[in-house]
Computed example of a mutant assay.
Amino acid sequence: MNIVILGAGQAAASLAAKLRGIGHDGGITIIGEEAAFPYQRPPLSKAYLLGDMPLERLTLRADDWWQEQGITMLTGTRATRIDRIAGHIETTAGPVPYDQLALTLGAVPHRLPGQIGGDLGRVHTLRNLDDIAQLRPDLQAGRRLVVIGGGYIGLEAAAVARKLGLDVTLVEAAPRILGRVAAPETADMIRELHRAHGVDIIEGASVNRLLGADRVTSIELADGRSLPADLVVLGIGIAPETGLAADAGLVVDNGIACNARGQTSDPAIWAAGDCASFPWRGQRIRLESVGNAIDMAELVADNMLGAARDYDPKPWFWSDQYDAKLQIAGLNAGYDRTVSRPGEGAQSGSVWYYAQDRLIAVDALNDARAYMVGKRLIEAGRSPDPARVGDPSTPVKELL
């Protein structure tokens, strides 16, 4: 059986390695648009952008590993069409036949439209190695950076820029940072962290347009304010890469729609990672995380070979900003109550999310112990008394 994996990120690498690990001895081909072999993406906006991680540590496998495993790597190759009838993918390197196909296409960052200045020079996104190569020369001490978007990518970019000596202003259109992904209490901790490092955070302010001749020189806000800018980083979210799937007639619903086993509306085509949505606890979700990319890809590999297992993820996430680490367990969607708990050091603490008295998620800033305890409780389906959670005199381990 010839298996083709379209997309060459974390999910692709995990899927291919799992296939070989569980005994698939047929063909495996990975097709990716970038010239590089599969590499980690989270460090791009953190250690790699800062210069603390070399490229060789970013890559997921040594280059010769792929050849040793008999995995064909078609890098620098763009897929143009999935022909489900013929069972092949049309690419810039010619047609690639498949018996089973896995779509691990990832996601693409949102950009500002050209008519409001989104195509000016020194306006950057952070998604791949080329993005970092273009941004790094512009990150010079003393320059004025405006980050548009107060999600994790924007906040991580702001932290790196401050470490490198830039003047940083972050603009968030919503009433507060982290509005879609975290409770106000978590946002308060992160806002305080950034302001302590000199970032000017402007919330509830949308961007009207970017101004400049060939490159950006200022940002005009909708309320009329003008912010000088030598460069801009966009952190305004990502969209799942669904174009090829939609053109091929596959069902798309908040990503490439899969069943609980990772199978799309075509039984010969599967999906995993950022591009894939799946049913989970009565809802259809899509997870943007390394953990999901690995776990879902490995499940798909098992199911391609007949395991018939359903996907039941245990979500976890993290974000590094300055010397602080925010760790997240569970999904907070649908919470109706939060409980805050102080940590043991400065700029540390945790926020515990409940839905109808059930613990569903924990955010922990510089508080690894609270994160681990919360994660174990969520995965075990156990919910400690919120009053005990919020009582700093109760040792966090006793919550178990």
Rank of each mutant, 00 (worst) to 15 (best):
G114D: 09
R57Q: 15
G94H: 02
K375H: 09
G151P: 05
L166Q: 04
R376W: 01
P267C: 06
P137E: 00
K18D: 04
E33G: 03
G70M: 11
A355C: 05
A307E: 10
P240A: 10
G94D: 01
T77H: 13
E398K: 14
G291H: 15
I201C: 12
G237T: 05
P313R: 08
G117A: 04
R81V: 03
G390V: 04
D266N: 12
G118V: 01
I378T: 11
W318A: 10
R261A: 14
I202F: 07
Q134D: 10
N259P: 12
L250Q: 01
V232P: 09
G32P: 06
T394F: 06
G273V: 02
A173Y: 07
A93W: 00
G23I: 00
G334F: 00
D83Y: 04
Y335P: 10
V362H: 06
R284T: 15
S289F: 07
C258A: 15
A183C: 02
S319C: 07
L399A: 06
G345Q: 14
W66Y: 15
L15Y: 03
G70E: 08
D188Y: 02
P313H: 06
G198V: 09
A173V: 13
A245C: 03
D83N: 12
L60S: 12
G94Y: 01
P175T: 07
D253H: 14
A260T: 10
D247A: 15
G150I: 05
G255S: 08
K375E: 05
E68Q: 15
Y98D: 00
R144K: 14
Q327M: 10
L135H: 03
A333D: 14
D83M: 05
I22A: 05
I132D: 06
D320S: 13
N366V: 04
I5S: 12
R281E: 15
L60E: 07
A333Q: 12
K46F: 11
R369E: 09
V108Y: 06
Q134E: 08
A248D: 00
D323C: 05
I238F: 11
I219W: 01
